[in-house]
Simulated assay, not measured.
Amino acid sequence: MADIQRNLRDTLACVEQSQTAPQTGLLCVLQARLVAVSKTKPVGSIQAAYDIGQRHFGENYLQELVEKSRQLSQDICWHYIGQLQTNKCKALAEVPNLWAVETIDSVKRARALNTACQHRPTPLNIFVQVNTSQEENKGGIPVAEAETLCRYVLDDCPQLHLLGLMTIGSVEHSGRIPNPDFQLMAKLQADLSRTLGRDLELSMGMSHDYQHALKMGATNVRVGSSIFGARAPKV
C-alpha cells in the first residue's frame, strides 16, 4: 500500500511537471486529470490511492466496475475504458457514480448508452474514441468519421455529455517523439473544437507515454502500472 501511495504521488508530480500550457483552441485547465487505471487490482489497492486523495479511477471490465463501485466510496469518479457492448449499457448506466465512458465509437453504441441513461439525473460524460493508427484490432471510429459521431451525440443524445476525444496510440508509434497518433489527435481536437463551437478534452497517454501525451495537449491521462504495478493476467 505504501508503494502504491508513493507511486501515485510520483505520477501526480510528473503530470504537473509535464503538462504544457494550452495554446489555442484547447480547453484551459489548471492541471490535467489523472485517471488511475485499477483494472484487475483489488479493492485494497484502490483504497490506498483513495486515501491520499485520488478520485478518478478507470476500469476495463464491467463486472469489476460494478463490484468495486459497491464496495468503495460513492465519491469516486469511475471511468469505463473498456470496449463498450450495447447489451451491457443498462448495467453500466446503473453504476451511480459512473463519471465517464471513454469508448464511444459508433452511433449504435451512443444510442444504446443514451437510452440506458434515461434514469440518470444528469447527462453522462462521454469521450468519442478515435482509431488514429487504423489498426483493425483496435476500437475507435476512423478520423474522418469523428465529426459525424460527435454531432450525433450533441444533437440526438440528450442523456450524454460530449466531453472530448480519446485514443489509444499504436505500439509502433509509442517510442516516437513526437508521436504521430498524438499529433493527429491534437489537430483533430483543435479542428473539432472550432467546428463544433465547444472546447473538447483530449484523453490520451498511458503509463509508458503519458508525459509526452501531456506535452502534446492531453487533458486526461490513463495510468495503471506506474501506480499499481504490473497487472496480473485476466482469468
Rank of each mutant, 00 (worst) to 15 (best):
R176F: 01
T86S: 14
L196F: 10
G82E: 05
E16R: 15
P96Y: 04
R55P: 06
A116E: 01
A49C: 07
R176E: 15
P121F: 12
V95P: 11
E16L: 06
K187V: 14
P42E: 10
S174M: 11
Q159A: 11
D209C: 08
D181A: 12
Q85V: 01
R198S: 00
Q71Y: 01
A230G: 06
T122W: 09
L200K: 02
G169S: 12
Q31S: 10
Q74V: 00
N87H: 15
K234D: 02
T20I: 13
N220E: 13
A2Y: 12
L65T: 02
Q74Y: 04
Q159D: 04
G82I: 02
V153H: 08
N97G: 06
G229Y: 10
R111A: 15
G139S: 14
A116T: 08
E135W: 08
M206G: 09
V153L: 14
R55W: 08
V143T: 14
P121L: 09
T219D: 10
A186M: 05
A112W: 00
G224N: 10
L30Y: 06
P233E: 13
A218C: 03
T40F: 07
N60M: 05
R222K: 10
I76A: 03
G169W: 01
N125I: 01
L160A: 12
K41D: 04
I168M: 15
V35T: 13
R55K: 14
P123Q: 08
I141N: 03
L65S: 05
T195C: 12
N114K: 02
E135T: 13
T148P: 00
L149H: 10
